[in-house]
């Protein structure tokens, strides 16, 4: 049996996907990166192989992506997260022309051409605004878990304005809103609006051609998606397994490279 491995070692979370022939997903695994992403990646690799009943030698090709990829020595190739996310998103949503990926410490907007190749991209620079980390920090200030943010957002009548998209300043803004007695759902909705405007600002650099797909861990937060749709006036598709798009893309590239090698 032939199997191909995609490993996405992100700044916060490690994702591993094993695919078989025709890109069928055989197994997947996700775990926090902690302080040693490559070690977690090795553990998850063993786990997905065991789950799929694939021996280590049966893995035909491995592609690593994400920030930790440079330190991970067991891959056949390294491919940037832009290329991997584009490939994964296009596989999950075949008509995708724009990918908004919101990761732990970096977010990106990727424009695809009609053939699904990367035409242009834009990433946030040197700032955690518009990333998952922004939500983690501000959720903590609100006494909420990241998972609880979407439910809280749903209760909001009118989002407050969070004027700063700097993570540190936004946190102090949240605290002053709480001190003023602003209802928590409205603060949460305000945060989601802030992150969405920041992302749409980046999207403005590369264009926002439908079909727009959102990937990355934050895509699971319905509040952020609602804010993106409201401000960007565009429908957004969130595929199942949105968080795994990068690892899936890496696995699909691995399969293609193995085919080239034959």
């Amino acid at each position: 049996m032939s199997a191909y491995l995609g490993i996405d070692i992100g700044s916060r979370v490690v994702k591993v996907v094993l695919v078989g022939a025709h890109g069928r997903v055989l197994a997947r695994a996700v775990a926090p990166a902690g302080i040693d992403g490559p070690a977690i990646a090795a553990e998850l690799t063993a786990r997905v192989c065991a789950e799929a009943g694939v021996g280590p030698r049966e893995v035909g090709y491995t592609v690593a992506t994400g920030y930790g990829r440079v330190r991970f020595c067991e891959a056949d190739a390294e491919v940037s997260e832009i290329t991997c996310h584009a490939r994964g998103a296009r596989h999950l949503v075949p008509g995708a022309r724009t990918v908004i990926d919101i990761g732990g410490q970096d977010s990106k907007v990727i424009a695809l051409d009609e053939q699904g190749r990367v035409a242009d991209f834009c990433m946030n620079d040197r700032c955690a605004a518009g990333t998952g980390r922004f939500l983690e920090v501000t959720a903590e200030a609100l006494g909420l878990s990241v998972e609880g943010l979407a439910a809280e957002h749903a209760l909001a009548r009118q989002p407050v304005t969070i004027s700063s998209t700097c993570t540190v300043f936004a946190e102090s803004e949240v605290i002053s809103h709480l001190a003023r007695g602003t209802p928590r759902p409205e603060i949460v909705a305000g945060l989601h609006h802030a992150i969405a405007s920041r992302l749409l600002g980046m999207a403005g650099r590369v264009g926002l051609t439908p079909v727009v797909v959102c990937t990355g861990g934050v895509a699971q937060n319905a509040g952020v998606i609602a804010a993106l749709e409201a401000i960007g006036k565009v429908a957004i598709t969130v595929p199942p397994d949105a968080q795994l798009a990068g690892a899936l893309g890496a696995a699909l590239i691995a399969a293609a490279r193995a085919a080239e090698r034959r």
Binding site: Y67, V70, E78, V79, E81, R117, D120, F121
Partner: peptide, 27 residues
Amino acid sequence: LLEADMCDTRAYAEGQVRARVEAFLET
């Protein structure tokens, strides 16, 4: 478009630069 500085190394983040350059070259 790459954010950096001509001399101030605090404005140059190795990992981020590398990610962008590699993605661009793959494009």
